[in-house]
């Protein structure tokens, strides 16, 4: 019994839990910044560690050591709690995604719904962070984040349900297992669902075509304007963990997740697939420009929702399962 608890604690805290995921978060931020720089024909971080690989870590450490200002007008409770919630929610969601080949750390039946709930909760946290800062820029940013969620949440939910219907299970571990029998990756069976989920994840991550809540050319830094020092460090870490979560979700639901391929173990294929998804995000972020909030919401409802419903109908009629 104690041995079982000990292995569980090790799995939650070290591998494939918190420590490993935070390491991945920093690594993927570096991959993202480096590839974005290459898309824009420059080098990106270069002198912090070998080819700048320690840059995200240096930024994090510097922010931790800086002064932590709480504006006089801010709601202290919300202002103190939201950065912590923002950085832990993606970490919790990542624990139900299988990473090292076998079962996820906290796998249970219906954990796909749990992940959808946490994705929404992250946006609610963003809204509360904007509201709690009590600055005009933060409030506009928070309201925009909530408004944007109204646009992308329905197609995202439908795109997450497609694989679940095909595999006949609401557990991410089971969906991954279903795909690994006979290499039937869902990106080949439901390419429309994959494209919709990529668009919705870009909106969830506030990446460039949908970086409306933190548009630095319009509203300073959006909902995170007032955060400094430790709180900003936690927010940046939370954002990086969210990138890991989004790429892990796409890799698990549509690209076969952590399955052993040829002689490669599951964890290595998982890393390769998630890095590919991060590169896809970065490329899209590099080639697009920002939408207006009304274009984003009406575009989502006009095109993404009907396409997502079409995808689910196709799956129901047996196409792509």
């Amino acid at each position: 019994m104690t041995e079982h608890l000990l292995t569980l604690a090790l799995r939650v805290l070290i591998y494939p839990g918190a420590l490993f995921l935070i390491f991945l978060a920093f690594l993927y931020e570096w991959v993202d910044r480096k590839f974005l720089a290459r898309v824009q024909n420059r080098y990106g971080p270069l002198y912090t560690g070998p080819s700048g690989i320690l840059q995200p870590f240096a930024d994090f450490l510097k922010l931790l050591s800086k002064e932590d200002i709480i504006p006089a007008a801010a709601d202290r409770l919300l202002f103190n709690l939201t950065p912590i919630a923002y950085s832990t929610l993606p970490l919790v969601a990542l624990l139900v995604i299988p990473i090292d080949g076998g079962e996820a750390v906290l796998a249970f039946d219906g954990d796909l719904i749990f992940v959808m709930f946490l994705l929404t909760l992250i946006v609610v946290t963003v809204f509360l962070a904007g509201l709690g800062s009590m600055s005009r820029f933060s409030i506009i940013g928070g309201v925009r984040a909530a408004l944007q969620m109204l646009g992308y949440e329905i197609p995202m939910g439908l795109a997450l349900i497609g694989p679940a219907v095909a595999a006949g299970s609401l557990s991410i571990t089971d969906i991954v297992r279903w795909q690994s029998t006979g290499l039937r990756w869902l990106i080949l069976l439901q390419p429309l669902g994959f494209a919709i989920l990529v668009c919705c994840m870009l909106a969830e991550l506030e990446y460039v075509p949908f970086d409306i809540p933190e548009a630095e050319t319009e509203i300073v830094a959006g909902w995170r304007t007032e955060f400094s020092g430790r709180k900003l460090a936690l927010i940046r870490l939370g954002k990086d963990l969210e990138v890991v979560l989004a790429s892990a979700l796409l890799a698990s639901l549509y690209l076969g997740g952590a399955q052993p391929l040829y002689s490669l173990p599951g964890s290595i294929t998982f890393l390769i697939k998630t890095v590919l998804v991060v590169l896809l995000f970065t490329f899209l972020r590099g080639v697009f420009a920002r939408f207006r909030i009304d274009q984003m919401v009406s575009g989502m409802w006009r095109y993404m929702v009907p396409l997502a419903i079409l995808q689910v109908i196709l799956v129901e009629f047996g196409v792509g399962r």
Binding site: Q40, G52, A221, L232
Partner: peptide, 21 residues
Amino acid sequence: TPRFDVERFGILLEGSPRHAD
């Protein structure tokens, strides 16, 4: 701009004074 690319040294342009050094 990309020609000089100061992100090589880790320099970023931030929008908010709360984030800057």
